[in-house]
Amino acid sequence: MTHVLLKGPCKAPIELSIDATIKSPVKPEDVGGNEILRIDYANAITISGKGVFDGQGSYAWKQNDCSKKFSCKLLGMNFAFNYVNNSIVRGITSKDSKQFHVNVLGCKNFTFDGFKVTAPENSANTDGIHIGRSTGVNVLNTDIGTGDDCVSLGDGSKQVLVQNVKCGPGHGISIGSLGKYKEEEPVDGITIKSCSIKGTQNGVRIKTWPSQPGTITVTNMRFEDITMDNVSNPVIIDQEYCPWNQCTKQYPSKIKISNVIIKNIKGTSATKEGIILACSSGVPCEGVEMSNVDLKFNGAPAIAVCSNVKPKITGKVPPCTAPSNKKQ
């Protein structure tokens, strides 16, 4: 199937029931748009069934040059929902997208329930569900394995719940990256709860760029009841995020992070540092609370490395230690 655009406003609720496998053309230029299915300016949309949207992305992944270019070419997504309200996607599978599987922009009261994302670990920039400038988005009972973030939350994300999600392989569940652009909007009220993360490059993460113009706030973050299984960097605030060395760390991040709850995190870490809180020296993190964090590395307790933050500790939590050297 080539690109399909459903554009509202619609006069009544619409339900799309899909049980077939829908395949995208292999080459991005043959799709006819940036997505297989795009829905704009609609209300009360339901997409349900056992259907599979197959982006056939392996050809496009070989063309991905984002590791070499600061601004790289968009290769195509399986789904885009732009300014869609009071809607739900239930039971559908997104497979092998050329780039992001799902992009959610400007939506309100939008839910994914029983959704599935599948792509190999080496599929670059294939974020499972990317959310931006949206309020009241729920990602529930969902299984995501891909080559980038399982769920990524961009600027303007507010009142988002990610609950009972299985993540892995991939890069974990991330807020950000943030601060790259001056005109970004604040992030507020994100809850990641009752999730299991396995074999990923990160667990739960907040990432912001140094030496970039963005000055938004990130507040009221909650990471709770999460099980890690052989996860690198299980809990990380990285305010020196600089992928592929495409930036300088000369100036600290201007993004203010506050009111972060890290609670009931258990399991195994693939790195000695189970917790990394690398906050900005320009605007240190405030209101960070950690309680009941039990992470093991090779059978021994993982450590916490903290800079520019003084977290409140309750229960069993590894004590903060200073970084031994600058994070690369």
Rank of each mutant, 00 (worst) to 15 (best):
180 K>E: 13
194 S>C: 15
253 S>V: 03
31 V>E: 03
219 T>D: 14
21 T>F: 10
209 W>L: 09
147 G>V: 06
91 G>I: 06
274 G>K: 01
242 C>N: 09
306 C>Q: 02
8 G>V: 02
28 P>N: 03
74 L>H: 13
102 V>G: 10
107 C>F: 05
141 N>A: 14
92 I>T: 06
247 C>T: 04
212 Q>N: 03
42 A>F: 03
292 N>Y: 08
131 I>T: 05
233 N>A: 13
191 T>N: 13
299 G>C: 03
279 C>I: 08
328 Q>L: 12
84 V>K: 00
82 N>M: 11
89 V>Q: 07
245 N>R: 11
141 N>C: 09
206 I>N: 04
52 V>H: 07
93 T>V: 12
95 K>E: 15
168 G>P: 03
270 A>G: 04
61 W>K: 10
204 V>T: 00
38 R>Y: 12
49 G>V: 06
267 G>K: 03
2 T>P: 03
283 V>D: 05
215 T>N: 07
328 Q>I: 10
198 K>E: 14
326 K>Y: 06
164 N>Q: 11
6 L>G: 01
94 S>E: 12
311 P>E: 14
300 A>E: 12
29 E>Q: 15
14 I>D: 01
121 E>T: 06
25 P>M: 14
176 G>K: 08
202 N>W: 00
36 I>C: 08
229 D>K: 10
22 I>V: 11
250 Q>N: 14
167 C>L: 04
4 V>R: 04
159 Q>L: 15
163 Q>W: 06
90 R>G: 07
143 D>A: 10
287 G>V: 13
105 L>A: 13
192 I>Q: 01
165 V>S: 02
242 C>I: 07
209 W>S: 01
75 L>S: 08
251 Y>C: 13
123 S>L: 01
21 T>I: 11
26 V>D: 06
59 Y>S: 14
270 A>M: 02
227 T>V: 15
299 G>E: 02
310 K>A: 12
305 V>M: 12
175 I>K: 06
44 A>G: 13
98 K>N: 08
279 C>F: 11
214 G>N: 04
278 A>G: 12
220 N>T: 10
208 T>E: 01
122 N>C: 02
260 V>F: 00
57 G>F: 04
115 F>G: 01
69 K>C: 07
291 S>T: 11
324 S>T: 12
256 K>S: 14
35 E>I: 08
112 F>N: 01
161 L>R: 05
120 P>I: 00
300 A>W: 07
89 V>R: 07
91 G>P: 13
217 T>W: 03
97 S>H: 10
163 Q>L: 15
207 K>W: 01
264 N>V: 08
199 G>V: 00
194 S>I: 15
28 P>S: 01
154 G>N: 06
80 A>V: 14
88 I>D: 11
6 L>D: 00
131 I>D: 00
181 Y>I: 15
228 M>V: 05
172 G>D: 04
89 V>D: 04
259 N>D: 08
